[in-house]
Write a protein that binds this DNA or RNA. Sequence first.
DNA 1: GCCGCTTGTGCAAACGTTTGTCAAGATGGA
DNA 2: TCCATCTTGACAAACGTTTGCACAAGCGGC
Lengths: 355, 355
Amino acid sequence: MTDPDPAEPRPPTPAPGHPATLREVADRAQVHISTASRALDASQVGRISEATVARVRAAAAELRYAPDLVAAGLKRGRTATIGVVVADLANPYLGPLIRGISTVMEEQGIVPLIAETLEDEDRLERVLLGLVQRRVDAIITAATHLGDEPTLQQVSARGVPIVLAVRSLPGDGFATVVHDDVHGGGLAAAHLARLGHRTAAQLLGPADIDTFVRRSQGFAEGVRLEGLRDVSVGAHAASATLEEGRRLMAILLDGPDHPTAVFVPSDIMAVGAMEAMAERGLACPAHLSVVGYNDVPLGAHLSPPLTTIRLPSEELGRAAARLALRVIEDPAAHGPALRLPATFVQRASTGPPPR
Amino acid sequence: MTDPDPAEPRPPTPAPGHPATLREVADRAQVHISTASRALDASQVGRISEATVARVRAAAAELRYAPDLVAAGLKRGRTATIGVVVADLANPYLGPLIRGISTVMEEQGIVPLIAETLEDEDRLERVLLGLVQRRVDAIITAATHLGDEPTLQQVSARGVPIVLAVRSLPGDGFATVVHDDVHGGGLAAAHLARLGHRTAAQLLGPADIDTFVRRSQGFAEGVRLEGLRDVSVGAHAASATLEEGRRLMAILLDGPDHPTAVFVPSDIMAVGAMEAMAERGLACPAHLSVVGYNDVPLGAHLSPPLTTIRLPSEELGRAAARLALRVIEDPAAHGPALRLPATFVQRASTGPPPR
DNA sequence: GCCGCTTGTGCAAACGTTTGTCAAGATGGA
DNA sequence: TCCATCTTGACAAACGTTTGCACAAGCGGC
């Protein structure tokens, strides 16, 4: 208990270039490294006397000690990181989603590793492997295509729990949280019927992405229920881009059978679709009503302001994060897929059909 | 070299729940673990005979071995991760930035850890510490405020190299890559002068964010050079949001001295500014020209389509990533700040002044 | 004064890699 | 035949933690 050398006051700051290690903290506090470890671990601190805890804490503070999480991760088998895989970081929808995930995770001291697939299956496989190798505690993916199950199963088999966000897969093999896109599509159909339209069409998103399939189902079903005539053409977009929206709308407009209203399953595609209309001298909504999907950030300030379906993306991110925390604890504990409600947003791109 | 037990063919797949370890690969290939390590490491493979390498590789493939990067990171002192800190994930500008970073990093097998500050200094400190503790190889931050130098210095002192992206700090203490915002502001002023405006104003972004300071400088200087009268009011936005744009424009419009053109240092703020105009019955550009900044995604489809300054954000992300790779190799090796050119985008929100 | 109990701390073995060093065998020249 | 040299691969010590276990006091009850 005697001060080793009172003439030499301990420097308050560490100075050595490398970050302080637990061993240094233990030495300074004159305890064994394991005691230091326990004194700093809230869940074990009861086992150590108050005086010792105080001494260790003081030493840690003086040295600005911050535990090396990769060492701790190696030992514990938990890295306090999760993987988040998205298709396309430039998609404005994903910002709020990631924020939702990271706010919930931050409360648990978990940081997300972000990876991008660009809708490419090979890339998906590569980034998943990268995340597995980094021993993330779980992976939340919003980038799956229909048919990716085997790839995801392999990851699961390596012991990393998976959460499907936004895009689901058939069956209930994975913990899942999605938007209620069937309902969202139905909202669009109901709105158009309410306005008095008798003939409608929808543009189709990529065929291998679950969200677009469900939106389409919901709309088609709604159209049928409302007794509208469906004059959609069968062409699918290769990707949910402005250009593809323009292309698909052109196909529809250049075809024989014209609707008075069109459901476009993505706001960005809807903007392209409206370009195709403008190129043909068609005004929106005077000649043709358009309802989009997603409620893109500046949708209210487009010309015309876009009627659309809004999805609670940040909330979905939070739900996905909470689900991930649950499956980290117990990989088998996921219930049925969570389904978050879509809401209808009326603006000026829809109106009564022309007479 | 004799097969230990030919009656029991080696299973092609691992089956055991846990991922294969290097030791298991070594055992299966009948070599020492260190030999296995070298056989799988491209830079050491020359030391091992071809036959052995082949044997080890085969064993690794059969077991689906993937090295544990956290263990490797602990040993090597390199984790093959970098930290990326941004202010606000919902900002559509940041998607392309992060994508730029991650595409360059992916080629090096490096994955980004993303953290968000929400423009809050305490959060900045917390997330930086979190990244340091995870032993990221470098940190790219696009979220600094003027005055954050000490915080960043501490991180540097802990041995993690830092790259400033988008937002710089005074002095040349950090590797830096930014947009040429002074020039960007100047472009706006020159354009307005060219249209024949004689009186202009600018709305001011947050005072503690370097980018807004430089945009403002560039514009003010341009205005002076062109001999315009500057009737800006001194109020700064608290944040670069639509609401703040509306508020600042309202102050300007409700003041005594009206310009015929306004520079708004962010497209989102510009949209708010135009709302304030609309509320007062002012048309854009008939009564008042507006030039924004950033070239937000759907800016061309707003009403009116927004004249703005475009920044190569994805390219900046790539440059930041390359710079990070350089400072990882040699922390002192950063040259002077890189400055990427801004370009002018003419659309319909600007026109000649009303007579 | 012995026993069993609690409390506080130390010991040492992991976690899965990487890498400096060294030994054994092979090769070649004299 | 012998020594020097080169390959090849093994040994073992790290990297910075966490944690099961053992052990030493201290203490009250008999």
